[in-house]
Computed example of a mutant assay.
Amino acid sequence: MDFSQLEHPEDRAIREKLDAIPKFKDFMMNTICVLREKFIAVEFVGNGVHVTDSCLPELHCQLLTVCEKLGVKDVPDFSLMWGYDITAATEGAKNPHITSMSGAVDILTESEFAFILGHEIGHQVCGHKPYHLFLESLYMPLINLVPGGEIWIGLVRSTLLNWYRISDFTADRVGLLACGDINVALRTMIKMSGAPKKYHNSLNIESFIKQANEFDTMFAGVAGKMINYISINTAFCPWLVARAAKLYEWYQSSDYAKLIN
């Protein structure tokens, strides 16, 4: 699959803008990413439960199934850590490693967890991880140890913060392809948004879609767009409602229909 066909247009545009900055990509790939990869390798050897064909083989099989469905040959490493949030994250660029909280496995159905895995694989196959690693390094002591690090903070921080959230819009599209059902994708987002477990059997997807559509129209004016921009860019990750709105919009578009057909 050519994953560039499903990239959110702002995702690609902002990365091209960053790559056009002289020496930025070389600095990112050959300095920050190399150091972060070494740090990550040490961290994950000593932490979490590694999912393999001999340890939690059912989960390992699910990862292989998602990769096969997406046409991804380089299967990432996969591990679990204790925590009851429905979250997962991918670390590493050359050697990606997906870490999921155990709560995501317990709370989500198999198809919903496929959306989570697909989302994380989406970051990998769409080339997001070097940029993620660089941005995350801006908030770590590591950046102060690298010659020229402080200069790059001033040059790219604002642009990277904006892009960081948009990259999830692209990854959600890959998640949808992995689970194959827009209702599954949206139901996963509802659960991630905070729906109590005892109500998971009665989730109202139509109501959530309505909320997502209202979110877009609510910030139509100049002042609203500015507030929305500032709020989202100071958040740790995109609001689930905003992500749902963007994913549903793409699902209804001709681009999605062409890709599926």
Rank of each mutant, 00 (worst) to 15 (best):
S79F: 03
S79R: 13
L80E: 13
M81W: 03
M81I: 15
W82T: 11
W82R: 14
Y84P: 05
Y84E: 14
Y84T: 11
D85P: 00
D85H: 11
T87D: 09
T87M: 01
A88Q: 04
A89G: 04
A89N: 07
E91T: 12
G92E: 08
A93F: 14
H97Q: 03
I98Q: 03
T99F: 08
S100H: 04
M101C: 12
M101H: 14
S102I: 15
S102A: 15
G103V: 06
A104C: 11
V105E: 13
V105P: 14
D106K: 10
D106C: 05
D106I: 04
T109A: 12
T109G: 15
T109Y: 02
E112P: 08
A114L: 00
F115D: 01
I116D: 01
I116A: 01
I116Y: 01
G118K: 07
H119M: 02
E120W: 06
E120M: 03
Q124A: 09
C126V: 00
H128S: 11
Y131F: 12
L133D: 13
L135H: 06
E136N: 11
E136Q: 08
L138W: 02
L138A: 06
Y139R: 07
Y139S: 10
M140F: 01
M140L: 07
P141T: 08
L142E: 04
N144A: 09
L145R: 10
V146S: 06
P147G: 07
G148N: 09
G149D: 05
G149P: 06
W152K: 05
W152M: 06
G154R: 05
G154V: 02
L155H: 07
S158C: 01
S158M: 06
R165K: 14
R165G: 03
I166V: 15
I166A: 13
T170K: 02
D172S: 10
R173T: 03
G175D: 02
L176F: 00
L176Q: 02
A178W: 01
C179V: 09
D181V: 04
V184F: 04
V184M: 04
A185F: 04
A185D: 07
T188I: 02
M192C: 15
M192G: 14
G194Q: 07
G194F: 09
G194M: 11
A195S: 15
A195T: 14
A195I: 07
P196F: 10
K198T: 10
K198M: 12
Y199T: 13
N201V: 02
N201H: 15
S202N: 14
L203V: 14
S207Y: 03
F208W: 13
F208A: 12
I209A: 12
K210E: 15
K210A: 15
Q211E: 10
A212E: 06
N213M: 05
N213I: 00
F215V: 00
F215R: 12
D216W: 01
T217W: 03
M218Q: 09
